[in-house]
Amino acid sequence: MEETELLRATGLEVGYGGEPVCAPVTLTVAAGTAVALVGPNGAGKSTVLQTMVGLLPPLAGSVSFAGRPVDEREAHFRRAVAGVLDDDAFFPSLTGEEHLLLTARGHGVVGAEQVVADQLAAFGLTERAGALPSQLSSGQRRRLALAGVLVRPARLLVLDEPERRLDTAMRRSLADRLAALVDAGVAVLFASHDPAFIGALADRVLVIGDDECPVVAPGDALAALQEG
């Protein structure tokens, strides 16, 4: 399958108040590939992800999606890019199922109710579909947030530590499902601390550091992760 470049960051400096949090990032993410971001806590992985999807302005450099500068205010960008960057924000009066229906219908998904039901089942939330967020456990809310990006069409998924608060079986299931999506042509960019998750999904790994942010093969990154 020919790789179509979706996301490109060139000399991208990210940070707050004019202060970069890590070395500049240069990276391309093609359709049908998965790139993992690794680095210690506080290295800047989340800041890089948020900047790449336009939630934070870059300090320097550029980031483009499908050949156009990233601008999350444009509807075409929001149609194509789905993300879970902050997973604990829910409308207190909407049930889990209603959150997913809102997303699916908002994106014009045909057969939204069936798609939502399928995702609820896949994430083991069918029994809790009518519960309010305050009635869900932390792990259930996490699964609901992840389901939110899978009930809608997307060309690129951007996930910040998707394995967080999931049990081992659910992590494995999620990795398998994301890998299947990658095979179907979706691009996935994710930050993770879990070597098994990275090993199951990533084609390449971006190592976030203070001095440089190299892109390496998963095997090299996993070896470094397991040593460190």
Partner: peptide, 27 residues
């Protein structure tokens, strides 16, 4: 696989007013 992002078919997207209305009514 449950519904994959590329497998969902696009129909009519909701307008902002429709999104607000759905949220308001559910609340």
């Amino acid at each position: 696989l449950a519904a994959a992002p590329l497998a969902t078919r696009a129909g009519d997207e909701w307008s902002g007013a429709a999104v607000r209305r759905f949220t308001r009514r559910a609340t």
